[in-house]
Design a protein around this nucleic acid. Sequence first.
DNA 1: ACGCCAGTCAACACCCTGTCGAGTCGAATC
DNA 2: GATTCGACTCGACAGGGTGTTGACTGGCGT
Lengths: 223, 223
Amino acid sequence: MTPARTSTGTAPTRGRRPGRSTGDDREVAILATAERLLGQRPFGEISIDDLARGAGISRPTFYFYFPAKDAVLLTLLDRVTEEADAAAGDALVRLAEDPRARWRELIARFHATFGGHRDVVLACAQVRGTNAEVRRLWAEVLERWVRAVEAAIEGERARGAAPDGLPARDLAIALNSMNERVWYATFAGDGPAVAERDVVDVLLDVWLTAIYRTTTPPVSPSA
Amino acid sequence: MTPARTSTGTAPTRGRRPGRSTGDDREVAILATAERLLGQRPFGEISIDDLARGAGISRPTFYFYFPAKDAVLLTLLDRVTEEADAAAGDALVRLAEDPRARWRELIARFHATFGGHRDVVLACAQVRGTNAEVRRLWAEVLERWVRAVEAAIEGERARGAAPDGLPARDLAIALNSMNERVWYATFAGDGPAVAERDVVDVLLDVWLTAIYRTTTPPVSPSA
DNA sequence: ACGCCAGTCAACACCCTGTCGAGTCGAATC
DNA sequence: GATTCGACTCGACAGGGTGTTGACTGGCGT
C-alpha cells in the first residue's frame, strides 16, 4: 500500500523506512481506530490524542506515523477510491450490448462502494473544504471518472445511439457532480435527500435521459 | 434585518436590545470585515481576532455581537439566500408559455446571485460539514427550492408537456443537487468543472432532458 | 561491547477559543 | 448636577488542541 506520509510533500524523511516491520501494526491500528471513531462522531471532534490512545500509543508517537490528523483520512480515502476504481473498472465495456444495464451497473457499484464506507466518504466531504490534500486527491479521482464517462458518451454518439448535444465532457461533469451530491445527502441524511433504496434508479434515469433522451437506449444492431 | 444572535437558540438575551443604535455600525463592520477577508483566505484561516480587529474592536467585544465565528457566516448566508429567493421568485410563473425560457431564467438568476457572493457561498459549503446551524439553514432553503421545482414538474406533467417518470420530488432533488455541486466546482475552480460562461446552459440542458426528454419543451396550446 | 536506528514519550511553546469581572460613558431620571 | 442604568468595552485567565524537541529504550548487525 502507498505510504501515508504524503501531506507536506516536501519531506518523506519522517516515518518508518522500509525493511523493518514493527511499526506496521501501529499504523494499521491508527487507521482502524480512525475508521471506528468516524462511526461514532464527526472527524472534527476526533483529536489526535483519541487516535493515538485508540492505537495504544502516545500523541507524539502518532506523529511518527502520520504527519497530521488529515493524513489518516487521506489514507482511508485512498483505499476507498481504489476500491471504487476496481469496482467500476469494467462496467462500461460492451456498452452497446445493453446500455441501460451497463450504466446501471456503473452507478450501482459506486453506490455500493461508497455506501460501504459512508463514514469515511462523509468525513472526506467535510474536510475537503479545509484540506488541500484531500481536495486534490478527490479532484484527481473525479477527473478519471469524468474522463471515462466522457469517452463512453462519445462512443455512444459515434454509434448513433445517443444524439449530439452538450459537449461530452460538460455532460460527464454535470452527471458525476449530481451523483456525488445526491449520495452525500442520502448518506448524511440531512436536508432533502433521495431514499437510499431508490437512489440508484433515480440517478440512472437522469443519466439516461441526459445522454440518450430516453430511458431505454437502443442496443447495437450487431453483436 | 434579523439579529445575528441565533446560534445557541436558547438565549436571545445577549446583545444590544432595540432602541439604541451605537452598536449597529460595529455589527455591520464585523460582517463587512468577514466578507472582505473571505475574499482573501478561507474561513478556517480567519480568526475571531481578525474579525474583531478589522471592525476596530477587541476579541472579547466580538462576543458581544456574535456568539461565535460561525454566526457571522450564518448571517451572511441568510442574506444571500434571501437575495436568491427574491431573484428566483417569479421565474416559474406562466411556465407553459415558454418553458425553456422560464427554466433558463430560474437557473440563470440563481447563478447570478451565487456568483455575486461566491466567497460567502464557498465558505458556507466548507463549514456546512462542521456546523449544524449552517447545515440546517441550507437544508431549509434547499427544501423550499426543491418543493417549488417539484410543483412545477407536476404542473408540466398535468398539462401533458412532460412525460411521467421519476417521482417529481426525487427528480427535483437530483437536479437541485446537481446545480449545487456544479456551481461549487465552477466557483471554487478545483477539480473538474464546467466553464463559468457555459454552466447555465449545461445545467439547463440536463434539466430539460430530464424533465421533458427534449431540449425544446412544447408551449401550451392556449395563451 | 558497541554503535546505530526505529520507535517511544514527557514536557514545552504556541495558538485559538470562550468567559469573567472590572471597568467607561452617555442618556434618562430625580 | 448628581445619580442610576444599561449598552458597550477589554485585560486577563482557563482550557484544550496542535506540533516539536530532546532524551530514552531495546534489538540487531558488526
